[in-house]
Nucleic acid binder design. Structure first.
Length: 675
RNA sequence: GGAGCUGUGGUGUAGUUGGUUAACAUAUCGGCCUGUCAAGCCGAAGAUCGCGGGUUCGAGUCCCGUCAGCUCCGCCA
């Protein structure tokens, strides 16, 4: 079986029954006759290595979109078309032509960028998705065409024919990849004129988001946006190829499904045929992928849109894309290894770096205790310091009473904080801490002689020494203290930690797994337990005996993948036993009847030989944004929604006609409260 | 649901303690121009300062409300 299909491959893998059984394969180079005997893993490593070489991505060249000039169809300039498909509208991409094409006649099509009209000579920057090419219109080449050329304006769509010529030495533009050549235009057709665009179609523009989103199709014309789309495409392709190599099947699951009580608010879709009933758009294909495991798929994945009707953030959209993965008969460690391999492949391809594996694993409790976050940014230190024992020796009532009631006193050191944290800044931080739920915030400027601080009078000089020592503080630092319930102290200081993070942090990606999440948290509003992950997550075996006596201390077989303070994925081992699943439902306050009504199909499925299974979902938008270095996932989503979940281009969401509502049996309640 | 920031010609910005014709760059339109690449030179047009109300002799500027965008909290894996 040949695995070729792409030019440049010349090796053959010999696969037969024996090979499959034994997991050893022979790789033969058809040119040299060389043979190598490889294990499955070695073979795979070999193939991905060669694949990268063959596609020209040798790590150094394949960098983030900002660095890579062009990547159209593997880098060749010819437009790829089926043979004999009729006369060409376009034969080459402009941005990929170079000296090798000098003397060739080509036909280029694209958009008019900058225009430099010298009277008898006009220069046009022609832009297509690959880049720019300078067109030269000479009055002497023909007055009819020249008259047309004079009428060209920004964003006109044109098609030109001519000869690629070398520029004279002094007119070479070194800042352009095609700067050594230009096209002497012999023929031009204006395919479509354009109104003056509402903003400049160029990189680095500082335009109002309203405009960018309203004219997103123009925004996407900007080279940096095209590069983001290209990066996204390449990342998804790599992910598909990678998972395919590991024998995952991509299977689609329904978009119209039923609302389930857990988790986020659902987007609902009214049913016309069942008046008064609703579909829900999936928050994730969670149940379907588990059922696919019961179906015996064993390894499933899907690049899938998910929907959650909650308020938005820079890294949250109402619809977003997950790389959804579910496996049977695979240990958590093995799933970690596959996921890490996928991350390594992505970072190798797009940043040319080799990730250190395995990634760090840190229990949830430790992440909270040391960094005040379940997605800690490990690119810098600033760990929280536990000060209970030392705080007990002070005279400070806030500390003492907190400790008395079982709370914690924790500290955070801001190195060199004296220089950039004024009294006002500290007041602001105190205010912020209160807004985040803390009682207050104590602070101290560390000086040679001791602390300058409103609370220094409660601390003896030797205690100050001890605390300084424990927090590794020296003169010039600022210390922040918080006394509160352990969770609150950690969370709030964790917030301050990210707020006060150093400007310059390590460039290296700091991947980690946060593991051992609690299975439940207590929902104060609803007065009951809620799943921390989702209700199908299995408890850790060694904690299962605590389910009835102390549910909050039961840890889950759940994990998050975190990179530089961003959660890029999460998953768990699922419950595959019907009784255990029912038990969890009842702990969550679902009656037997309710759970049968809502999840009966799952409970049934679990009784028909459900294999042990588990999986993970990766946030594709966040992943791509991290790869491209963008702070907001909006940049890597072609048509994103605003923070208020509306689409400025289409005007969605919008009202519908009375007839439509009538058909659906829906009546809109007049929002008359205000009137 | 809450907090903060932003909103001035097409675009990006300036606009003083409230004061007279709201400034600059760029784009647009017209003219000149054969080696530019942020082309250049000359000229023209273009803004009820997001919207509504209030204070004032007078509001881009102060106050209240409102809309939109962004960021964060709540919410959400």
């Amino acid at each position: 079986m040949k695995y070729s299909g792409r030019q440049g491959f010349n090796r053959v893998v010999i696969i037969g029954e024996d090979e499959l059984k034994e997991g050893r394969f022979t790789l033969r180079n058809m040119e040299t006759g060389e043979q190598a005997d490889l294990s499955r893993e070695e073979l795979f490593a070999h193939l991905t290595e060669e694949y990268r070489e063959d596609t020209g991505g040798n790590g150094k060249e394949s960098v983030s979109p900002a660095g890579k000039e062009s990547n159209v169809t593997g880098g060749q300039a010819e437009v790829v078309l089926p043979e004999q498909a009729g006369p060409a509208v376009k034969t080459h991409y402009c941005g990929v032509l170079d000296q090798n094409f000098v003397g060739r006649k080509v036909k280029l099509s694209g958009w008019v960028g900058k225009r430099r009209d010298h009277g008898g000579l006009i220069f046009i920057d022609l832009r297509d998705r690959s880049g720019l090419m300078q067109l030269v219109f000479d009055q002497r080449m023909g007055s009819e065409m020249f008259r047309q050329a004079e009428s060209l304006r920004s964003e006109f769509v044109i098609s030109v024919e001519g000869e690629v010529v070398r520029r004279s030495e002094e007119t070479i533009n070194p800042s352009l990849t095609t700067g050594e050549i230009e096209l002497k235009v012999e023929n031009m057709e204006i395919l479509n004129p354009s109104k003056t665009p509402p903003f400049y179609i160029e990189d680095g523009v500082n335009v109002d988001d309203n405009l960018r989103l309203r004219y997103r199709y123009l925004d996407l014309r900007r080279p940096e946006m095209l590069k983001r789309m290209q990066l996204r495409h390449r990342a998804v392709k790599l992910i598909r190829d990678f998972l395919d190599h590991y024998e995952f099947l991509e299977i689609e699951t329904p978009m119209l499904t039923r609302s389930t009580p857990e988790g986020a608010r659902d987007f609902l879709v009214p049913s016309r045929q069942h008046s008064g009933s609703f579909y829900a758009l999936p928050q994730s294909p969670q149940l379907f992928k588990q059922l696919l495991m019961v179906s015996g798929i064993e390894r499933y994945f899907q690049v899938v849109r998910c929907f959650r009707d909650e308020d938005l953030r820079a890294d949250r959209q109402p619809e977003f894309t997950q790389v959804d993965i579910e496996t049977s008969f695979i240990s958590t460690e093995q799933l970690f290894a596959i996921t890490e391999g996928l991350m390594a492949a992505l970072w190798r391809e797009f940043h040319g770096i080799e990730l250190k594996r395995p990634f760090l694993r840190m229990p949830y409790y430790q992440a909270m205790d040391r960094f005040g976050s379940d997605k800690p940014d490990l690119r810098y230190g600033m760990e929280l310091v536990e000060l209970n024992d030392l705080a007990r020796k002070s005279e400070f009532k806030v500390f003492l009473s907190t400790l008395e009631s079982g709370g914690s006193v924790k500290g955070l050191r801001v190195s060199g904080g004296v220089d950039h944290l004024s009294r006002k800044d500290l007041d602001d931080l105190t205010l912020l801490a209160r807004q985040l739920g803390a009682g207050g915030l104590a602070w101290a400027y560390v000086e040679e002689e001791g602390w300058r601080s409103p609370i220094s009078k409660f601390f003896t000089s030797s205690l100050v020494e001890e605390i300084n020592l424990k927090m590794e503080a020296s003169a010039g630092d600022v210390l922040l203290f918080m006394a509160d319930k352990w969770e609150t102290a950690c969370e709030v200081l964790g917030h301050l930690r990210t707020r006060l993070a150093p400007e310059k942090v390590s460039e290296e990606p700091h991947f980690m797994w946060v593991i051992d999440f609690p299975l439940f948290h207590y929902n104060e509003e609803e007065q009951r337990y809620d799943s921390d992950h989702h209700p199908f997550t299995a408890p850790k075996d060694e904690d299962a005996h605590l389910l009835d006596s102390d549910p909050l201390s039961v840890r889950a077989q759940a994990y998050d993948l975190v990179l530089n303070g961003v959660e890029i994925g999460g998953g768990s081992t699922r419950i595959h036993n019907r009784e255990e699943q029912s038990r969890i439902f009842s702990l969550l306050g679902l009656s037997e009847e309710e759970s049968k009504e809502k999840f009966g199909f799952l409970l049934d499925a679990l009784t028909y030989g459900a294999p042990p299974h588990g999986g993970i979902a990766l946030g594709l938008d966040r992943l791509v944004a991290l790869l491209s270095g963008d702070d907001s996932i909006r940049e890597v989503i072609p048509f994103p929604k605003t923070a208020a979940a509306s689409c400025l281009m289409t005007g969605a969401p919008a009202g519908v006609s009375e007839e439509q509502l009538e058909e659906l049996g829906i009546e809109i309640k007049k929002s008359s409260e205000k009137e």
